[in-house]
């Protein structure tokens, strides 16, 4: 954990983002749509990583937060005709309030208990959305015809890429500060952080707020891209695991890791689609994730690093 800027690192980032920026020149509209999903998945995975990857409080209920963001903005704009310039910020703020709810169990419990409670949050939300005020939420069928922000795959691609890029840069800058170090330290040994004179409750709350804000931004923009929202697809265990596996597969506790993981998974699922149309695809990616995890628990990011070191020399 050095705090001097690593220029080779920056160069890699520039190549990565530059390559993504040129993407619409080379691929079909259909592939571009896949990329748009990958960008949003990357946002969700980064959000999960801030909240869980760093602090070690593993959330199994991330769609709960994403859902608050998406539903709030969709309801405000579709039912109450609130302009998206307002509905999105309100949605983000509401998601942060949801993040506080998430935080309450973290005051008392850790590990698998915390994971289970957050899973219950997601399930509860799934049930409630369908029965409470279906006139607002659209019940089981959800809402369609939500206002979209931009037209066309190219525009939406750039929007999602821009969002992902800005979020990545902000999170990266935050993680380089003493605060970022302290958050990572909580995941390694919470007692010792408290024993260093730091209020771990405050630190965890901050991590949860940032994670929730990112989930809210992602959820709100995503719903205004899709133009529709349905509880079945959102509060879904497959969706949840896609987020978690993306973060872990790419390399938790890094910024680029969850992004790499999101792209890898999205395209893996996409290319498996013609071969395995059903849910078996998830089995295959689970297997790949497991193999990679056994072989290199630090994820794709570390493999990538080692590959680079083998070719160019330098740090392995």
């Amino acid at each position: 954990m050095t705090s001097t800027i690593n220029w080779r690192h920056l160069l890699l980032w520039a190549v990565f983002l530059g390559g993504l920026a040129l993407m619409p020149q080379f691929v079909t509209r259909g592939t571009l749509r896949t990329f748009i999903f990958a960008n949003y998945l990357a946002i969700f995975a980064m959000s999960w990583d801030v909240l869980s990857g760093r602090t070690g409080y593993v959330s199994f209920g991330h769609p709960f937060l994403i859902g608050i963001g998406a539903y709030t903005s969709a309801i405000l704009s579709y039912r109450f005709h609130v302009p998206v310039g307002w509905s999105i910020p309100i949605a983000v703020a509401t998601t942060m309030i949801g993040g506080t709810l998430f935080f309450l169990p973290a005051l008392r419990i850790r590990g698998s208990y915390f994971a289970l409670v957050t899973l219950a949050f997601m399930e509860l939300m799934y049930q409630l959305v369908q029965v409470i005020r279906p006139d607002l939420t659209g019940g089981t069928r959800g809402i369609s015809g939500v206002q979209t922000l931009l037209r066309g795959a190219v525009n939406n691609y750039y929007l999602s890429l821009g969002l992902m890029g800005v979020i990545a840069i902000l999170l990266w800058s935050m993680m380089r500060t003493r605060l970022g170090t302290a958050l990572s330290a909580i995941g390694m040994n919470e007692e010792a952080v408290e024993g260093s004179g730091l209020n771990t409750t405050k630190l965890k709350l901050f991590a949860f707020m940032v994670g929730a804000a990112v989930a809210g931004i992602g959820g709100a923009f995503y719903v205004h891209y899709l133009g529709s929202i349905a509880p079945r697809a959102l509060f879904d265990v497959n969706f949840l695991f896609t987020i978690i596996v993306a973060a872990l597969l790419g390399g938790a506790s890094t910024i680029i890791g969850p992004m790499l993981g999101a792209f890898f998974l999205t395209f893996l699922l996409e290319y498996l689609r013609p071969l395995l149309p059903g849910a078996e695809r998830y089995f295959i990616y689970g297997l790949i994730a497991l193999l990679l995890y056994m072989y290199e628990p630090r994820g794709l990011y570390e493999l990538f690093h080692r590959g680079r070191a083998r070719i160019f020399g330098g740090r392995a």
Binding site: M1, T181, A182, S184, M188, N189, S196, G197, S253
Partner: peptide, 16 residues
Amino acid sequence: PFADMDVLANIEVGLM
């Protein structure tokens, strides 16, 4: 100790 941080970073947590 904080296992994934180097020695100096470990000490610096105490200085925050």
